[in-house]
């Protein structure tokens, strides 16, 4: 750990947490895998990666992580949820974003795809997203701002310091979303 870099946790109960760590470290963050409550201490932000949302939900229950994760979000630490992570942020799970995710909304694996997504707030044109049995945001409250769509479905959203995307830019190799997120973590740390 170096003094100038924000420390970003990556929930590592199951899923593509290693790909997120590589991405975060590439854009100037220190990272820590989070498996138990003690791993949350001192984090400037957290990524909830892709994976199986049921597996991750059961893991969160087993480890007693639900309330500590909510607390982290309420304290203002930025949280980025990708794919299963988007589902975990919704009302039916951690409830950190006022929205309802529809699981596997695009269909089974044979309907998985990659596409360009115009994410509002990101410079440099559309970003390539890999959608794996991906969810979309079926419905949301006024606090949630939809910042990206595919085929008319909401696939990227922001609410305060929460950021959720249906897709995997960490698989496509585009680091702009992670760069923006690490910027949010840096600002949150300086404000704290």
């Amino acid at each position: 750990m170096s003094p100038g870099r924000p420390l970003v946790g990556v929930l590592a109960l199951q899923g593509d947490f290693a790909a997120h760590r590589r991405m975060l470290e590439g854009v100037g963050a220190d990272t820590r895998e989070v498996r138990v409550v003690a791993d949350l201490a001192g984090l400037d932000g957290l990524v909830i990666p892709g994976g199986e949302s049921t597996t991750m939900t059961l893991g969160i229950e087993r480890e007693g992580l639900a309330e500590p994760l909510r607390e982290l979000g309420r304290e203002g630490a930025p949280i980025l949820g990708s794919c299963a992570g988007l589902i975990l942020l919704d009302r039916d799970h951690l409830g950190l974003m006022d929205m309802r995710a529809e699981r596997n909304a695009f269909g089974r694996q044979v309907r998985s795809f990659e596409a360009d997504v115009d994410v509002r707030g990101l410079d440099g044109g559309p970003m390539r997203g890999v959608f794996i049995r991906a969810p979309w945001i079926a419905e949301h409250g006024p606090e949630v701002e939809i910042v990206g769509e595919v085929d008319g479905h909401a696939v990227a959203a922001r609410q305060g310091s929460m950021l959720a995307v249906s897709f995997h830019s960490e698989i496509a190799g585009d680091d702009r979303l992670h760069r923006m997120f690490v910027g949010m973590c840096e600002r949150a740390r300086l404000a704290a």
Binding site: A12, L13, Q14, G15, D16, F17, A18, A19, G50, G51, E52, T55, C83, A84, Q109, V110, R111, S112, F113, E114, A115, D116, V130, F131, I132, R133, V150, H168, I171, A172
Partner: peptide, 21 residues
Amino acid sequence: MRDEATFRVKTGLAEMLKGGV
């Protein structure tokens, strides 16, 4: 542009299964 069944899409699901049983 939208592409299905690219190698990245195929390996992508395995990436999501990592750390799992």
